[in-house]
Write a protein that binds this DNA or RNA. Structure first.
Lengths: 129, 129
DNA sequence: TGCACATCTGCGCAGAAATCAAGATGTCAC
DNA sequence: GTGACATCTTGATTTCTGCGCAGATGTGCA
C-alpha cells in the first residue's frame, strides 16, 4: 500500500513508513494540539505560575492582594490575569469596585501539582540554578 | 526565595494582609516556580506538542521518522528536540548514524493527558455550578 | 455631580524565542 | 581516504511578549 504521507518533500527517506503512518493517525488533531500548546504557553511564565499558584492556595483573591502576594505591580498583575482569563484558566467575579479572581478549571490544579513534582524530584543534578 | 512582602510602594492598600502573608509563605520558592514555568514553556508550542505526542504514541522514533510524523523538516525537528532535551523532556539514544528519541520523564505523559482532557472537555470540571 | 478608589488598557521599548537557509559534525560503506 | 547519509549547529532576520508608564474605564460614596 502506498502511504499517503503528504509531506511537502522534506524527508523522503523513512525508516519505518508504516509506523509513521500509524502514529500519525493516532495523534490528536491539529486543533487539539494548538489548544494544548496554548494552555502550556499561558502557564509558561514565572509570573503567571506565581499567580496561579497563589490562587491555588488562596482560592480567591482580589487584584491588589494578588499583586502583593506575587510581588508585582497591579497593572502587571492585571495584564497577566487577562492572558490567563483569555485561556479560561482563571475566572473573575465582580463585587463592587473590586474584582475577585479564582481558578476556573480543575485540571489546572493537577497540572501545577505534576509540574511541581517534576521540578522538585528533578533527576539528581543538584545545583544552584 | 523572596523577601516577605517587600511593598516597595506598588500597593500599599491590602484588603487582607494576613491572608496575603499566609498565602505568600505557602508558595513554592522562586527556583521551583521558574522551573515549572520552563517546563510549561517548553510544551507551549504546537510543534513541540506534536513531537511529544508522537513520542508518547510511538515510544521511540528517529529524527527523520519523527519529522515525517509531525510534518516538519528534519532541521526544524532537530531544533525543537534540542529545546526539549535541554529541559529533560526527551532523551536520545545513538545507534549508528541514527539518533532515537523518546520521552525522558513519566510526568510529561500525565501532563499531556491532562492538557488533552482539558482542551477536549473544554473546561468541563463538572459538579460545581 | 464630583471625587476617590480598584482595575483595566494602549503605547513604546527591550529582550527572548521561533524561523529559515546554509554549512558543519559525525557515522557508515566501499 | 572518499563519498553518502543522518543529524546537528550557526547566523541573520522576524515575530512575539513582558515591562513600565501614563491614562482610561467603571464603581461607590458624600
Amino acid at each position: 500500500m502506498s502511504e499517503p504521507i503528504p509531506l511537502d518533500g522534506c524527508s523522503v527517506r523513512l525508516v519505518d513508513p508504516e509506523r509513521v503512518a500509524s502514529v500519525r493517525a493516532r495523534l490528536p488533531d491539529g486543533d487539539a494540539t494548538e489548544r494544548m500548546a496554548r494552555v502550556f504557553h499561558v502557564l509558561g511564565e514565572p509570573a503567571r505560575v506565581r499567580i496561579v499558584t497563589a490562587l491555588l492556595e488562596a482560592g480567591e483573591l482580589c487584584v491588589c492582594d494578588l499583586a502583593a502576594t506575587v510581588g508585582m505591580t497591579e497593572a502587571q498583575t492585571s495584564q497577566h490575569l487577562r492572558v490567563l482569563r483569555a485561556e479560561r484558566t482563571v475566572r473573575n467575579r465582580r463585587d463592587g469596585r473590586m474584582v475577585w479572581y479564582s481558578l476556573d478549571d480543575a485540571h489546572v490544579r493537577l497540572l501545577m501539582d505534576l509540574a511541581l513534582q517534576h521540578v522538585t524530584h528533578e533527576h539528581g543534578d543538584g545545583g544552584s540554578a
